[in-house]
Structure formats: C-alpha cells, structure tokens
C-alpha cells in the first residue's frame, strides 16, 4: 500500500496501457446447441412424436384427425398465449380457467342480443378482472400467485351467481352469426383454429417486435433494472394481466359459440394446462425469456398426447395427465441443464 502522504499530488498512473480492442469470446458450439435446443426443442419433440405416431396409427395422420386435434387445442392455445406474456414478466395468472368459463357464460347470455354484445361483453367483463389482477399486483405490490388465486375463486363465484348455482344454462341462438363464429370452418379447419393462429401471429409481433414486448422481457428479467431504466413497470404489469384476462375471456366466448351454450363446469384446472404448455414451450417460469411460438408447440404437444391416448383406446384418458406431467418434469429438468450449458459452467 503506497502511503497516502506520498500521493498527495495527483500522480499519473503510469503510461496508459496500449489500446486494444475488447473482443469477447464467442459462444462455444455447446452453448449454441443448447440455445437452439432450448428454443426449438419442443418443436423437434412434437415433429418426432407426430412422425412416429403416423407410422403406429393409421388414423393419426389423416386430415380429419388433424382438424380434430387443432380445434381442441385452439381454445387452450389462446389462453396459453396470454399466460406466456404474463410468465415472461415473471408473474403467473391462475384465474384464466375461471375467467374462460365466465367468458363463455357471459357470451352465451349476451348472444340473445346479437353478435356484437356476445363478443364484446365477455371481453369487457374478463378484461376488467384482468385489470384488477394487474392493479393489485403492480400498484399494491401483492404476489401474483395470491391475487390471481383470489380471482380464480371470485370469477368462479360470479359465474355461479349468474347461472343460479349452475342450474341455468344459457344457449346461443341456433343459426346466429355468433354460433357460426365457433362452428364455421374453412377447408374443414374451424374458425377458432384460424383465429388462434392469427392471435399467435399478433402475439409474436407484440412480444418480439414492439417496445411493449421489450418491456415485458425487461420486467421479467430484472424488475429493479427496468424501473431504474425508466420503463413504465407498473403500467406494463397492469396491461399484461388485462391482456391475459381478455384472451381467456375471448377463448371462453369462442368455446361457447362452438358448443352453442355457456357451459358452467368448464375450465377447471385449465390454468395448469396453460402453464404446462408455456413451460414446455421453453418460457422460463422465473420470467425474462420465452416465446409465443414455443407455447404454440407446447399446446399442440399436449393435444397430440391426448389424441394418442384416445387412439390407443384401451387407456383411460386420465393417463393424459400422467404423460403430460412426465413431460413437464423432463422439460423443466432439461431447461436447468440447458441454461447451465448456455452459461458455460
């Protein structure tokens, strides 16, 4: 330690070291492979599974079966899209299953007044629930898990109140435009499938190519840094939960249109399927990284597994949960290894 007295004069710290360029080491091949696998791993598994199944089951790779699988998956996929955005911010939305059911009932009830009310009223109601979630999370600083658990119960309660404890089922008028929205098809692919695809396209743009999407990643990656960088953290959170509520309600309305009625017992546990699909799709549960395309593959993967179990026939469909659960564990374990590989440790 040079004595302080010696250095009373501002001493120049020797000649400046030569100016060279900081070149960071490139990511190794292993890191890149891990990154690719994390991003596209689900898609690979999905394709592999489809190829194998089409050899095993004659009825698998048919147009009819494809139509069936996709229409089944379309409603969950719309819900999971909203869930992806929420999870990217490091949050979670447990209310989507109840909101989905509520959206269906509200839409079926409003369908007696025409197409627009049937479409807009569920959006208003469910969007409001999402906004309340968001406000409680962002402004009151409550844990997303608690807030959305409460609104899971609340939305279910509201639904029961609307339907006299589930005794009353509202029907969508036959032949109405709203019913066509759920039942119509292009080349055999139901409108809900096409709508879901369009929403995923928009969702992908929103997440990857807009400032709002960047803010979602930043909030999930490091909320403190996002705040210090001057991002509107609270507003972003409110918006993302509102969006999740809107999407869940919209999916519920579509489903009601397809079923021609507001079924009350629907959507129980749907939030867990949505979360599984998101996580299987490579989105980090802690936030900060993820993609909507991964979620789409995740939803389809769950759908294909369900479909295969139906094909086998001898298996009870409850096995679907067992298989999906197994998948989830594999994916989460794989994610840990992959992110370790990406960090190069």
């Amino acid at each position: 330690m040079k004595s302080l007295a010696d250095t009373a004069l501002p001493a120049p710290a020797g000649p400046p070291p030569p100016l060279t360029v900081t070149a960071e080491p490139r990511p190794s091949g292993r890191q890149r492979a891990a990154e690719l696998l994390q991003r596209q791993g689900v898609l690979a598994v999905l394709v592999l599974l489809c190829v194998i199944s089409s050899f095993l089951f004659d009825s698998f790779a048919t147009l009819d079966n494809t139509r069936g699988v996709t229409i089944q998956a379309s409603f969950l996929s719309i819900v999971a899209l909203g869930m992806t955005l929420v999870i990217v911010t490091g949050g979670i939305d447990l209310s989507v299953g109840s909101v989905f059911a509520l959206g269906g009932v509200v839409a079926a009830w409003a369908s007696q007044y025409g197409f627009l009310p049937a479409l807009l009223l569920p959006l208003v109601v469910c969007g409001a629930i999402g906004a309340i979630n968001g406000l409680l999370v962002a402004k009151a600083g409550m844990a997303p898990f608690i807030v959305t658990l409460a609104s899971l119960l609340g939305a279910r309660g509201l639904l029961l109140a609307l339907t006299h404890e589930g005794a009353k089922t509202y029907l969508v008028p036959r032949g109405s435009a709203f019913q066509k929205l759920g039942g119509g098809a292009v080349w055999g692919f139901g409108y809900p499938v096409l709508i879901a695809l369009a929403l995923f396209g928009l969702g992908g743009l929103l997440l990857q190519r807009t400032s709002f999407g960047q803010a979602l990643f930043a909030v999930g990656g490091s909320g403190d840094a996002a705040l210090l960088m001057g991002l509107p953290v609270a507003r972003t959170k409110v918006l993302v939960y509102t969006l999740s509520g809107l999407l869940a309600g919209f999916a519920g309305a579509l489903n009601a249109a397809r079923l021609s009625s507001g079924v009350t017992i629907i959507g129980v546990g749907m939030e867990l399927d949505a979360i599984s699909a998101v996580v299987i799709g490579g989105t980090l549960l802690v936030g900060g990284a993820g993609s909507v395309s991964g979620t789409l593959w995740g939803v389809l993967l769950l759908g294909v597994i369900q479909n295969l179990i139906n094909q086998i026939g001898s298996l009870n469909s409850s096995y679907q949960s067992v298989v999906s659960g197994g998948f989830l564990i594999v994916v989460v374990v794989a994610q840990r290894y992959l992110s370790a590989a990406r960090r190069g440790t």
Binding site: D224, M229, L231, G288
Partner: peptide
C-alpha cells in the same frame, strides 16, 4: 444515471439493453 448496483437486464441482448424504452 449509471447506478451502482443493477443497471441492465442480464438475459436480454446487448442492443436491447441499450435501447430499452427508446427502441
């Protein structure tokens, strides 16, 4: 401001960090 502790989001790319909020 460059704060002492957290300033940037580790998972995001360099460019995104620099332009966050003013892309």
């Amino acid at each position: 401001t460059i704060y002492q502790e957290v300033n940037l989001v580790p998972l995001m790319s360099v460019a995104r960090n620099i332009f966050l909020g003013r892309e």
